[in-house]
Design a protein around this nucleic acid. Sequence first.
DNA 1: CTGAAAGCGCTTACAG
DNA 2: CTGAAAGCGCTTACAG
Lengths: 347, 347
Amino acid sequence: MPNPPPRPGRQARAAAPSEPGGAAASIAAVAALAGVSTATVSRVLNQSKPVNAETRGRVEAAVAQLGYRANPFARSLISGASQLILVVVPDMANPFFAEIVQGIESVMRRHGYNIVLSVASGNGPLDPVYDRLTDGVISLAHAHSQRSGADGTARRDVPWVACSEFMTGADMPYVSIDHAQAAMDAVQYLLNRGHRRIALITAEEDYAWAQQRRLGYETALQRAGLPVLPAYVRVARGTDYGDGSDVAGGLLTLPEPPTAVFAVADTLAIGAIKAFRRAGRRVPDDIAVVGFDNVPLAQVFEPGLTTIAQPMRELGAASAELLLAQLTGEQPPSRVLPHALVVRDSG
Amino acid sequence: MPNPPPRPGRQARAAAPSEPGGAAASIAAVAALAGVSTATVSRVLNQSKPVNAETRGRVEAAVAQLGYRANPFARSLISGASQLILVVVPDMANPFFAEIVQGIESVMRRHGYNIVLSVASGNGPLDPVYDRLTDGVISLAHAHSQRSGADGTARRDVPWVACSEFMTGADMPYVSIDHAQAAMDAVQYLLNRGHRRIALITAEEDYAWAQQRRLGYETALQRAGLPVLPAYVRVARGTDYGDGSDVAGGLLTLPEPPTAVFAVADTLAIGAIKAFRRAGRRVPDDIAVVGFDNVPLAQVFEPGLTTIAQPMRELGAASAELLLAQLTGEQPPSRVLPHALVVRDSG
DNA sequence: CTGAAAGCGCTTACAG
DNA sequence: CTGAAAGCGCTTACAG
């Protein structure tokens, strides 16, 4: 293992001016003011043992007077827990991830945890998990990256839940919808509407959910006795609007252009619609588009986006609950949440 | 001050199974394996003092063999710094905030800091600042809430930067565009296009930026010799699409409806456009709409949104740099970043 | 260049 | 109910 880099902040901080308003009070100061031992102060603060009412009163008064708060690092050093959990997202710009993070945040906060956010753009040496900073992890990043650290070595065994992005049989608890089934539902809907030439706009295949949704797309076509045409499958670079536009254009110049497209993210779907319109096509008349996620924008955009709704907040909340259960020593089962097809105007 | 609540996680964590794969190695284990003192191990890890090359080699080998990483809490207890900074956002769902967070994250990560995310929905007792968990704060929350804790008491004096949301003369460093000027530019543009009946859709006034933008709106009208009509000013509840739709409808039923509206957020502008269309109005022909922020969606939405572009990533990055400077004891000046009017199709 | 020891700020058996 | 003391895992003067 390479030498861990020095922590640049240490020296920096040492050079900072000493705390304005005086150094923060220590538990010793509170004890002195209240005329008790630090053990007693600790007991009233944590309600860990009965303390004489009168004594408690003096301690509380001292705490209030000094504005004392326990040093979280000393506590964590002893307890081995930080009340911090790591949330790894591939990209904050996608509203899908933002919604999930909000779901996680609200239940974690209720349980006294703070969340550390890591944008897994794979650009830094920082690895809070490896550093044992956080008590657990909820990851939305590529499943295949979830078990190795920044340096490629295997991670320590940390309480972990995969959210939305998971691999079956990886014995890692997850919370997700059934991506393959949801994709089948989307394509089946298009089939029911009479479409026979249905294209797929998908994302990089290192996302397991991209593979799973692609599988659903293929399965639906095959069951309908339709071929899976390579020319009809386009892989977008990311999930930005522009990524969707970039790959959509090519579909139109095919000898037999599709009459419908299923995009694995609303952002891709919207980007595709933009591209189709720029090319003079009408949606859904010339080409129907179905998205995935049901981000808030899906109903605001025009035409309203027909899409697979994922219960985003619930995915986040359930992930948090699963992690919390692990933190208390349980081995809770993974959860598959329901999805739903929302029909609007785009397809 | 009220008694701090007990930390629920402690007991929970205590009940958890002991670390699978064995407890994490301590520095003592490394020292024993390498046949040196813990002081020496510490020195090679931190490169804080010269260490004999041969000795260093043994230590590094031991570190590698044990997969050792320093316990961050022990370090923080000594240094008084956590390499953690708090980012307070009102709402992750708004892409504006998401972009800024990404800007902050990228520079902070490069400097070895992790970010703790707090969604200031004002719903929890958690207060990492007050708890001295983080080394500093970047806040996008209401300026008037930035200086008091969850319990209403004044916060400790912590390195702090206000991002986008700030109050002049509050002697708190900030990074922002000039909201009033930007709003004036937007309204002036509408004036130049011949509009005389220009409405404002703004956000709750506890945002200083909402007040500042409103001021810009009023100033532009007054300079043009136009009255500021209360009926033309609508305050949205939040900044969701729906909030924009909710207040936009009322504008249409006025005896003299506006011919243009300036909304203080792209999300509000898009919500308003939705409402106008549902009422049968064409944008921009019947009513022009100018937004604010230039979120990615602004160019994807149809009609393309004319809006004030804020340099979102840069706002985040500059905030991070300002905080970093404070952390090294500097007193860097606030920064006002440039904005720009982006003309598209909505107005 | 290296080590023994103190100390960061807490919590928790152990006594009483 | 309360206190003295050990200890969590590190870093850093202080000696050598």
